[in-house]
Each structure stands twice: as structure tokens, then as C-alpha cells.
Amino acid sequence: MKRAVNYRPDRATGAFLALLPFAFALVAYFLASEARLAANPADRLMPSFGAFADAIEQFAFTENRRTGEYLLWSDTAISLRRIAIGLGVSVLLCIVVGVPAGFLPVLSRLLGPFVAALSLIPPLAVLPILFIVFGLGELAKVALIVFGVAPFLIRDVALAVQQIPRELIVKAQTLGASTWQMMTLVVFPQVLPRLFDSLRLSLGATWLFLIAAEAIASEGGLGYRIFLVRRFLAMDVILPYVAWITLLAFLMDWGLARLSRRLARWRAIEKGEA
């Protein structure tokens, strides 16, 4: 009998195992929903799969009578745009602040404690301030994402910069590198995989802040829709929206992992993934 740690499933078994919990959840939901609907056909808490299909049909493939839009797609576009801008600004800040702050001792003293303090402020606590300062428009929502994600990214990347072996920095100087050249050609490429990793880890927080901002003040977006239909206990809409958000988040995570492997092939080779 092999020890459990030494038992490695082959590809097919692995795929089967991965799908098992999903299948189990679906079946469990189906059975519970059937039972509830049998007891009370007007039950709204656990709609049948047929009700989901109707809701999806209505939100994704039917033109909205009032606005002439397909709601799911317009909500998705609005939310993704906010995320793209929020994460884009965060990554930019991380590169122009985090890399120098990790690399240059003076900047590290200047910015380290300040960024650490920033990252400890609960972003949702400052949401009212953001709404007051930036108004109820797009800016406040993007600002919340930036406020919630950028300090973490900056700190994480600055730490990664400091973990680069000192020898490599000395070596670069013996090859004649200036500070700018070391930062752009030695330090940045080496922390790029770490930036991708921490960006992936921030995706959960990003969606959390997006939905929080959309729930409070918005005219569209996936989070806005969920909180809007909540008033009608429309579980048949909420659950597909949640599943859709999860899928989007999963795809973003997967895409970032792929992009990271492409842009930093050396790292993938080091880890034996390429």
C-alpha cells in the first residue's frame, strides 16, 4: 500500500476528480430544489434549472424594452471596464512606485511606512470619502479598486525587489549599469512574475470592491444588477449572475497565468513548467 502522499492521479483521473465536486454541488442543488418546489411550487429561494434558463434567456438574449440593451452584456461591459481601469492604474502605480521603492534605499525609507499604513486602511471604510470626493460617477468606483489593490501590489513587488540576490545588483554594476538600467533591465524583469502572481491573488479583492461600489451607487454593472433584483428575491437571476462573475474571474486568473508564462518564460523553465 502506497502512502497517500505518493499517490499521484493520472491526467484522466485528475480531471475526473476536479469535476467531481462541481457535479456534486449541481446534483445536490437539483435535488434540494426539486424537493422544495414539490412542497411549494411558489418557492423563490431555489429556482429550478428551467427558471434559470428563462432568466438567462431574458437577460442575455432579449433586448431590454426600456433601454434597448441586452442587460447581461451591458452589465458585463460596464463592470469589466471598471476592473480594467482599476487594475491597470494599480499595476502602473505598482511599477512606477513599487519597483523604485523596493530598489532605492532612500525611496524605500520615504515610501515604505507610508504605503504600509495605506494598505492597512480598510478600503470600504473610505468608500464614503471616495463618493464625497469623486462623486457618484465612474471615478469613485475605479478609485475604490485602486485604493484596495494598489498598496498591496506595491508592497508585494517592493518586497520581491528586495529579495533579488545582492550579487546580481553588484554584478550589473560591474558591467557598467546605471540605476535606471538596473531598474528597467535587471530588477523589473525579475519581479514581473511576482507582479503577475500578486495580481492574480488580488482578483478576489478586486471583484469584492467592484461589487461593493456598484451595490451602493451605480446605474449598471453586474454588482448593481444583483443588488437591484434582490428586492424581488429573484434568485433565478442572482445565481446565474454569480456563476457568470465567477467564470469571468476564473478566466482572468487563467489569462494572467498564461500571460505570465509567456512574458517570463525563464521563470516557467526554472519551475519546470515549460
Binding site: 540576490p165 550579487e167 554594476q173 560591474t174
Partner: peptide, 28 residues
């Protein structure tokens, strides 16, 4: 400061892991 008049080879961490052999040599 370290300058190109003095080259160095350490026991470890002497080459840049994100560059190919050729890129490492062409770097300086």
C-alpha cells in the same frame, strides 16, 4: 562603487536568470 574595470564571478548568482546565455554576455 563597483565599476566595469573590475569584473567578478561569485560562487552563485553570477548570471541573470531572466536572460539567455547570449543575452547575458551581450548585456554589458
Amino acid at each position: 562603487e563597483p565599476q566595469p574595470d573590475r569584473g567578478v564571478v561569485f560562487q552563485r548568482y553570477s548570471v541573470f536568470p531572466h536572460m539567455t546565455a547570449l543575452q547575458n554576455v551581450m548585456f554589458g
